[in-house]
Write a protein that binds this DNA or RNA. Structure first.
Lengths: 187, 187
DNA sequence: TTCCGAATGTGATCCAGGTCACACACCATC
DNA sequence: GATGGTGTGTGACCTGGATCACATTCGGAA
């Protein structure tokens, strides 16, 4: 898939940009290619960019003191990923991002995003709505965590992203559900 | 506290508005008073507004099929509350909002917010940052849920909001932590 | 072909937290 | 003073999921 067209299709769902505006917007993105298993953001890094996925699949995750992994998000094509806490507050990363498969991304720096938001009202509109959706999704996931048992959450996840079942190893699914690999295996 | 000054102090932390712009912005808010225990948004309602708390305390919560309550958020002065999923998508509420104590709010309709965001770039900037912070907070809470046991989360909550300890009944704290009242009582 | 490591299934045991049941303290209001 | 609701503590028991320990399968590298 052509990166420019993919981004254009994505943003025009919520913002109306002229041809020149989109060209200008797009000119701030930098194409990057990563291999399966490669790290994009590592705990302790200074985080400068967020990433728009073109192809492949990322995961953003947290590693606790016992080296246990918790997955915050899988990022498929047209999804965005970063350590947003570190990115917005210009602090060191506490979240990792790496590649579940070979992945192409478009990279946008925090400074460029803020500059674009400032220069083009519609771009700020787009980013407001992107975060709105993310916020609502995070709240839903939180509620599901409090309310539902593992089996229910697993079925919910598979209904939402059936492609994960065959694409992603089960231990990663378990880390997303916040459950042990063994318990997930027992369905 | 004067509602207008409270809102002004709140918004000028992230957006620069002229005096006239703020007056115009403020003119879209409607002051409302509620009594302790009164419901503001009830499951099934059409949700038209979001609420900026001036004084008192709100809770937004979900009731599951077993009538068990889960608290998404306590809203203290300068916090915002609503059923954002329903508000943004103009669907029926699945989240309730009611008053833990007598509460004064400023009410802003979804239409007015969108209108203001469209008319005044800085207002859109403000709402983008408000949601950014909410999104990051929701992610942190999710991680804390997956990573920490009840005791740890309870201490975390009290460190973050010490005023809750004496203000809010323990069964509500338990509903926020996603734990039974009895377990919380045993610390 | 053989070997190795990653991914997965499964049994045995343990424990944090849920559920149920009561007791009690603190108020309101009648 | 009696009555009733609401918040809180605590004991007894149960259970979902964690943990540890092995076994099996499979794909890639030598």
């Amino acid at each position: 898939m052509d990166p420019k067209e993919l981004l254009k299709g994505h943003i025009t769902k919520t913002a109306v940009l002229t041809e020149e505006q989109f060209e200008y917007f797009f000119s701030h993105f930098k194409k990057q290619d990563f291999k399966k298993g490669q790290a994009i953001i590592t705990d302790g890094d200074v985080v400068n960019c967020e990433y728009f996925v073109i192809s492949g699949c990322l995961k953003s995750f947290f590693i606790n003191d016992d080296l246990k992994m918790f997955i915050l998000q899988f990022a498929m094509p047209t999804w965005w990923a970063s350590d947003y806490n570190a990115l917005y507050s210009q602090s060191k990363a506490t979240i990792n991002v790496d590649c579940i498969s070979d992945t192409e991304v478009l990279c946008l720096s925090n400074n460029d995003r803020e500059k674009l938001c400032n220069e083009i009202h519609e771009v700020e509109h787009f980013f407001r709505w992107r975060t709105n959706r993310g916020y609502v999704a995070a709240q839903k996931r939180l509620l599901s965590f409090m309310n539902n048992n593992v089996k229910h959450r697993y079925e919910e996840l598979l209904k939402l992203y059936p492609e994960l079942y065959n694409t992603v190893p089960k231990n990663l699914i378990a880390a997303y559900l916040g459950v042990s690999r063994e318990t997930l295996s027992r369905l």
